[in-house]
Design a binder for these strands. Structure first.
Lengths: 326, 326
DNA sequence: TTGTATGCGTTATCAG
DNA sequence: CTGATAACGCATACAA
């Protein structure tokens, strides 16, 4: 079933078929011929061969989506936003899930061979080289060298920290991601600033790093809570980490928020189901993904674009934060 | 950067390059020539053009992954398993997120044009037609007509129900998915059977359906709990639905498990962070995905394969289930 | 307004 | 053992 078959059925040449179906025949092909071609294509169930088209045009109309953890709900939402935007723009989406502790190169290698016109890196640092002509947009990662989209992490974390300070907390702990990415480094900076502002030394005993799983986060939170002078509140880089604090507090018989306040980041769905419901910073992950794709599409189309975009976030106060004890 | 460039650099013909790099030169190409070709390819950073190869061979070495909800952690894990298996087999993975209330055809149409050699349908009913020669494997959906992989839902749900009955529960409610898929219909059948076995009529007042989000699940659970004769335990089709029961119970001042026991299905990560931790049925979603891909790969390779596979699950008893009150 | 001819980069057949 | 050469299906410059 190729354009040649359609041409034969419609009694025209192959190039006419191509012209008609690509829409580039506008005004050059007679209405009758056009109708005949369309009908033949329809009847035969013709669909253009993507490989041939890609070979000929040099564009695959598909983009690669690189995420560090498909199972993290935040990425799930971001992926949904990106993939929905991509599909409506006629782009397919290739998924690449690369755990951060594994080399990127291998899986990407395959895609760089042509199946993909560009990459969306979600919280993953793109490799240095750019051998092919693929476009790249980074989301929540280092903005150097590539167009980027990110959340207003400063504003969000400041809001959470400010909320905690208003409740009288000064010894605020920070449960941080072990991934050394800018988005998390920003959080650490704001945390330091907030503590200094509160007249408290941002000592290492008030910080602990963990991966994005509840058990690891619980262990790290435990170290914070077991310290000689434990924090009265813990600001977390992420809701998953905050979940770890719940686990650690529970093990130690500590009540939230009476004994320790907890604030998260992302507003994942499960945050509301926790008890008490988690105070967190809401981010529109789906929009983040959609904007990222739009940026990439513009780059692929060769359009001029702003270097970066910052999306707003919003503090959501729920039950896990309360006035500082004593 | 094409094979022609490599040929020129190595001082051989283009077809020799192809032979060497595809490994089909085994024993026909001299070691010296082979080395020269490989070195030239290496130095030039040559990588075969995927579109050209796909056009020539008719195989894209990529598969489509169709899921109803990328943000659901269960699909996240399944996708991870499938995509990891795919990458190690040299296949790329195209992601298609199709909410169940939306038509499948549009997004699939694009992929059927050739970029994809086969489809993995996760909890999505594949469309009837199979115009192209793509292979299809269905996961947790109707097994008719296609090879399938699924979880031992019967065994898992029976275990949960049996556990509840051992605790003395007879009026067991069922919070079910609104999606009319076999995997959920099976749960409903087992629930009916269990109630009948306990001498209780499986009336409609003991059943409620919801979508996979906490709010909707909470509303449905509320209807169960507000009934004249509410259930003393609720078996849920899924952990998200179980989360809804937590929300509904909390709103009504009911304690889990003292006033109502709750059992989930899937063992999503957040199940342990709930309070009390959720009793649920653990499913190895990652393996499900990996097995599904392996099945699809076999089908693409034209191998004979067993019609279906059932993967085991395991009951995990935690704090959300207790002895029946009264 | 339509048709002819060409090439995109590969693989694979067939001579040499 | 290696090199011409012919497709694969499409888009497009150019000719008619």
């Amino acid at each position: 079933m190729t354009s040649v078959d359609v041409a034969r059925a419609a009694g025209v040449s192959q190039s006419t078929v191509s012209l008609v179906l690509s829409g580039k025949g506008r005004g050059r092909i007679s209405a009758r011929t056009e109708a005949a071609v369309r009908r033949a294509a329809e009847e035969l169930g013709y669909r253009p061969n993507a490989a041939a088209r890609a070979l000929r045009t040099g564009a695959a109309r598909s983009v690669g989506l690189v995420v560090p953890d498909v199972t993290h709900p935040f990425f799930g939402e971001t992926m949904r936003g990106a993939q929905e935007a991509a599909w409506t723009a006629g782009y397919a989406v290739a998924l690449v899930d690369v755990p951060l502790d594994r080399p990127l190169e291998a899986p990407l290698e395959a895609l760089r061979a042509g199946p993909v016109d560009g990459f969306l890196y979600f919280s993953v640092e793109p490799p240095e080289w750019r051998p092919g002509g693929e476009q790249v947009v980074v989301i929540e990662a280092s903005p150097d060298a590539f167009p980027w989209v990110r959340l207003d992490v400063e504003g969000g974390f400041d809001a959470a920290l400010g909320h905690l300070r208003e409740l009288g907390h000064t010894r605020i702990g920070h449960l941080t991601s072990r991934v050394p990415y800018p988005t998390f480094q920003i959080r650490t900076e704001r945390w330091r600033a907030a503590l200094v502002g509160a007249g408290v030394e941002p000592v290492d005993a008030l910080r602990a790093g963990a991966g994005f799983d509840f058990d690891d986060a619980a262990r790290a939170a435990g170290r914070l809570l077991d310290a000689a002078e434990p924090p009265t509140a813990i600001a977390c880089d992420d809701d998953i980490l905050a979940g770890g604090v719940y686990l650690a507090a529970r093990e130690r018989g500590l009540r939230i928020p009476e004994d320790v306040s907890v604030a998260g980041f992302d507003d994942l769905d499960f945050a509301r189901v926790l008890w008490p419901p988690l105070t967190t910073v809401r981010a529109d992950a789906e929009r983040l993904g959609a904007v990222a794709f739009a940026t990439l599409a513009a780059a692929i189309a060769g359009e001029e674009l702003e270097a970066g975009q910052v999306l707003p976030v919003e503090l959501v106060v729920r039950g896990s934060t309360g006035v500082a004890a004593g």
